[in-house]
């Protein structure tokens, strides 16, 4: 009976987690419908305009040391950044999970 309850709790947690992921996805999709005509460009590009509005004669005094040649290359680099992070998180979670499993087997 105890294992049954445990499984129930596990299933419940899975459901809650999936629900939370779903909420995150919805939060990202809603704007596409709310602001239909928007271009969804990066906000930092728009900031240049905002600054130009406040202080028209401002000239950036330094340019990036390296600038991706195209938005495709930039996306690739951003994807790379996310991939590196995700890989580390995945490795860490797998490591912890495996260790816990081993400890549980030995412990009880």
């Amino acid at each position: 009976m105890e294992t049954g309850a445990l499984n129930g709790a596990k299933k419940n947690r899975l459901f809650v987690n999936l629900l939370l992921v779903f909420v995150v996805v919805v939060l990202a999709v809603i704007p596409l419908y709310v602001a239909r005509d928007a271009e969804f460009e990066g906000a930092d590009g728009k900031a240049e305009e905002a600054i130009a509005e406040i202080k028209a004669d401002y000239e950036p005094w330094f340019s990036p040391v390296f600038e991706p040649k195209s938005s495709e290359i930039e996306s690739a680099l951003f994807a790379l950044q996310a991939a590196i992070g995700a890989a580390v998180i995945g490795y860490g979670l797998g490591y912890l999970r495996g260790r816990k499993k081993k400890e549980d087997e030995q412990g009880t």
Binding site: L27, A28, I30, P31, L32, V34, A35, D37, A38, E39, F40, E41, G42, A43, K46, F78, A79, Q81, A82, I84, G85, A86, A87, V88, I89, G92, L93
Partner: peptide, 21 residues
């Protein structure tokens, strides 16, 4: 993992209600 989490999240440009990302 904490560092990696910041790595992942700050690489994700997500659209927002104001029409920019």
């Amino acid at each position: 993992m904490a560092g990696a989490f910041a790595f992942v999240l700050s690489a994700l440009k997500i659209p927002s209600v104001t029409g920019s990302c």
